[in-house]
Nucleic acid binder design. Structure first.
Lengths: 127, 127
DNA sequence: TAGTTTCTAACAACCGTTGCTGATTGCGGC
DNA sequence: GCCGCAATCAGCAACGGTTGTTAGAAACTA
């Protein structure tokens, strides 16, 4: 895997960002420096990084896949109003009730808390 | 909201099905009885039912929105190999760590256990 | 029966993503 | 320095899932 300027820039864009950007957001940011880069390259690089375990792709039901440079196990708060995503520490001890599907082997547990972030909860409902 | 044959059939297809079908799967099933129904009508009806709270749309990262007639709060097991989805009872007491984002108001907690279902775990890895 | 409202079907469009392809780049060997 | 190979990149087209639009059909009301 070669270290190309495109990849360096994409990698940097991810790690300077705790907003869980979409591929499109990365594309916009990188394009500010490299006007000729293509969206295709961004997708390709993000998928490569994900395959190497350098970033975690997450799908929070917001329509587009997001990429998370935080590799430590954690969960997410998602604001239904503004779409903001916030990391929270993983919670220990979550597992399926023992009487359900005892043969299922769990390899990952995704927890998403949905609701309103502080700013949106304080604000009166949007008109 | 009128009760039309199309809606009745779609509603029935959902409630006779615990596989969390996609709109497309519903479409195929209903079309067996009503060859002229359009995919558009299925989507529209499913969205209407969801808006009324009669079914719950769920996005488990499988690419398409699924519809769950089970309205009681519950979580899901998702097999990474065969895509099977199984309901499990909700787990009490899951909430974000108290020291994180204390102003966030949680309205819903989605938990997805990913891994291998019994059949897929038992089977030797697919060649 | 005419008017009004609701629903349906068909089509095209949209979004996020990926397959394909030809051009480009970097690197090792000679 | 030159050649050939392999990897990469950009651009476009295409794909799956979903929704907007619209014209026509159906049902309900007065």
């Amino acid at each position: 895997m070669k270290v190309t300027p495109q990849r360096q820039r994409i990698f940097a864009a991810l790690h300077g960002n705790d907003r869980h950007p979409t591929a499109d957001a990365i594309f916009d940011e990188v394009r500010a420096d490299m006007p000729t880069i293509s969206l295709r390259t961004v997708y390709q690089t993000l998928n490569d990084l994900a395959a190497m375990g350098e970033v975690a792709p997450i799908d929070l039901g917001t329509g587009a896949t997001r990429f998370d440079p935080n590799l430590i196990e954690h969960h997410h708060l998602v604001c239904d109003v503004c779409g903001t995503i916030v990391d929270v520490d993983a919670i220990a001890g979550i597992e399926p009730p023992g009487d359900a599907e005892p043969t299922f082997v769990v390899t990952r547990t995704d927890v998403v808390f949905r609701g309103n972030c502080g700013a949106c909860a304080a604000r009166p409902s949007p008109v």
